[in-house]
Amino acid sequence: MNLGIVRTLVDILDAGNLSEAARRRGVTRSQISKELKELERQAGTMLVYRTTRHVAPTEAGRILYEHGHRMLAELRAAREAIQGLGDEIRGHVRISVPTALGTSHLGGALIAFQERHPEVTLRVRYSNLVENLVGDEVDIAVRILRDVPVSEFASEVSQIPWRLFAATSYLARRKPIAKPEDLADCDFLCTTGPPSSPTPLTLRLQSGRRIEQVAMKARMQSEHLPFLREAMLGGLGIAPLPDYAASDDVDRGAARVILPEWKLIGLDGRLFILAAQDRNAPRAVRALIDHLREMLGVIVDRYAADRG
Rank of each mutant, 00 (worst) to 15 (best):
E230V: 11
E230G: 09
A231Q: 12
A231R: 09
A231T: 07
M232Q: 04
M232H: 07
G234P: 02
G234E: 08
G235F: 09
G235A: 03
L236Q: 12
G237D: 04
G237S: 04
G237V: 07
G237N: 07
I238M: 09
I238G: 04
I238R: 15
I238W: 14
A239D: 00
P240M: 04
L241P: 02
P242S: 09
D243H: 14
Y244M: 07
Y244P: 02
Y244I: 05
A245R: 15
A246N: 12
A246M: 12
A246C: 07
S247T: 11
S247Y: 14
V250P: 01
D251N: 10
D251G: 09
G253S: 02
A254S: 10
A254G: 06
A254C: 08
A255P: 00
A255N: 01
A255G: 00
R256H: 14
R256G: 04
R256N: 05
I258G: 02
L259E: 00
L259N: 01
P260Q: 06
E261A: 06
E261W: 14
E261P: 01
W262S: 01
K263Y: 12
K263I: 14
K263V: 12
L264I: 13
I265F: 10
G266Q: 05
G266Y: 14
L267H: 13
L267Q: 15
D268P: 08
D268L: 06
D268W: 14
G269K: 12
G269T: 09
R270T: 08
R270D: 12
R270L: 07
L271R: 13
L271I: 04
I273V: 01
I273P: 00
L274A: 04
A275E: 09
A275Q: 11
A275G: 05
Q277F: 06
R279P: 02
N280Q: 12
P282E: 10
R283Q: 14
R283E: 13
R283T: 15
R283N: 10
A284L: 07
A284N: 04
A284D: 09
A284M: 05
V285C: 03
V285H: 14
A287N: 05
I289G: 00
I289Q: 03
I289E: 00
H291M: 06
L292F: 09
R293H: 08
R293K: 06
R293P: 10
R293M: 05
E294Q: 09
E294K: 10
E294M: 10
M295E: 12
M295D: 14
M295K: 11
L296P: 02
L296I: 02
L296T: 01
G297P: 01
G297S: 00
V298C: 03
I299C: 06
D301E: 15
D301G: 13
